[in-house]
Simulated assay, not measured.
Amino acid sequence: MSIYGVEDFLARAKAYIEIGDENALRHACLELRFSLESIVYQRLRKIGDKLPRSVYKSWQPQKALKLLLSFEPRADQDITLDICVETVDGAPSGNRQHIGDYKMFSVKWLNKSYNKLGKFLHLTSLSEDDSPPQINATDLQEILDEIERVSTASLVLTMNSITAVACAVCKSDMYVSLSQIEEGSVVECYKDSCGAKHNIVKLDEGRFTADRIGFQSVPCNKCGKSFSIEDVKHGELKDCWNCSQTHVVGWGYSAWPIPEKSTV
């Protein structure tokens, strides 16, 4: 069995693709989605206990893999691991021993393929009545081939350390990796109702801060707690993460200094 254990999903998908009618191909889509989810979620679990499953258990694979990439920028790239064998005197011999291969989907491919499979797991929407999406056995076979390629990996690598830090807005745990600290990344709160952005600023001796510098928060009109509005567009609705009070956010401007009213 492969390290990801998706053989049963792929075997059923192959059988459905061989049958080839629309009903069978829809079942193949479901099995292929299960395969993608299994591989991505297992890869994310390898980060360890520092990233609780509650952070990503309800996420679709695209968002989960994006999170993984924020921690490990090369996590969606194939890697071959070899070691150099030493001679008796401790000098490198030049002979290499193959340890294994790490394989993973690219984010771009995963986004495209996962969404394509999803189109055929629901009834056609009203907007698609005139040109419903066409399920295609050839497309499904190409997706299956890529999943099979990744499933032949012999290694699952994780190469980062992760630290928990409180969101400056809602106080929920966020998770910051060593690579994000080194690169001075922008990290978002994982709580969907918050999503506040933070600048990661490296200090000394491995320390860092998560600052809201350059980002905007306003107090809730009901509970008074601050909520982030940096990604809110003019006229958009935004719920308070604490009490769920809905707000409408609008931008405006005026001359400065404010002109004095003329008197007659």
Results as ranks from 00 to 15, higher is better:
142 E>Y: 08
109 W>P: 04
107 V>K: 06
138 T>C: 04
155 L>M: 11
112 K>W: 01
119 K>P: 00
146 E>K: 07
103 K>T: 05
133 P>A: 00
160 N>Y: 01
131 S>T: 12
151 S>A: 15
162 I>G: 11
108 K>E: 15
153 A>E: 09
123 L>S: 14
122 H>T: 01
100 G>R: 12
163 T>L: 13
126 L>H: 11
124 T>W: 05
140 L>C: 06
111 N>A: 08
154 S>W: 09
141 Q>E: 09
107 V>C: 05
121 L>D: 05
154 S>R: 05
122 H>I: 00
129 D>C: 15
136 N>E: 08
157 L>M: 14
145 D>A: 04
119 K>L: 01
157 L>F: 05
119 K>E: 01
144 L>G: 02
131 S>C: 12
112 K>A: 02
127 S>V: 14
124 T>L: 04
136 N>L: 02
126 L>N: 11
120 F>R: 01
104 M>I: 08
114 Y>P: 01
131 S>K: 14
153 A>L: 06
117 L>K: 10
121 L>W: 08
138 T>I: 07
113 S>V: 03
145 D>T: 07
111 N>D: 13
139 D>C: 00
162 I>V: 15
153 A>C: 04
114 Y>V: 05
136 N>M: 03
126 L>Q: 09
126 L>A: 13
136 N>R: 03
114 Y>H: 03
107 V>H: 07
100 G>F: 13
146 E>P: 00
117 L>W: 08
121 L>M: 15
127 S>R: 14
153 A>Q: 05
160 N>A: 03
135 I>F: 02
130 D>Y: 09
100 G>I: 13
160 N>H: 01
148 E>I: 07
125 S>R: 10
128 E>Q: 11
105 F>W: 09
144 L>R: 06
111 N>S: 10
125 S>T: 13
111 N>I: 09
102 Y>P: 09
114 Y>I: 02
125 S>C: 07
106 S>L: 10
162 I>Q: 08
148 E>F: 01
129 D>A: 15
134 Q>V: 03
119 K>R: 07
130 D>H: 12
121 L>V: 15
144 L>T: 02
132 P>I: 12
110 L>N: 07
137 A>L: 06
136 N>D: 15
148 E>D: 11
119 K>Y: 00
157 L>W: 07
133 P>F: 01
106 S>A: 10
103 K>L: 09
144 L>D: 02
144 L>F: 05
129 D>R: 13
109 W>V: 12
116 K>R: 08
101 D>Q: 04
113 S>N: 11
146 E>C: 01
116 K>M: 03
163 T>N: 14
149 R>W: 15
118 G>M: 02
124 T>E: 12
144 L>W: 04
116 K>H: 07
120 F>E: 00
157 L>D: 11
115 N>P: 00
129 D>K: 13
142 E>W: 05
113 S>A: 15
107 V>M: 10
143 I>W: 03
118 G>D: 02
123 L>W: 12
121 L>A: 13
145 D>I: 03
103 K>Q: 10
159 M>H: 02
152 T>Q: 13
133 P>E: 01
156 V>T: 07
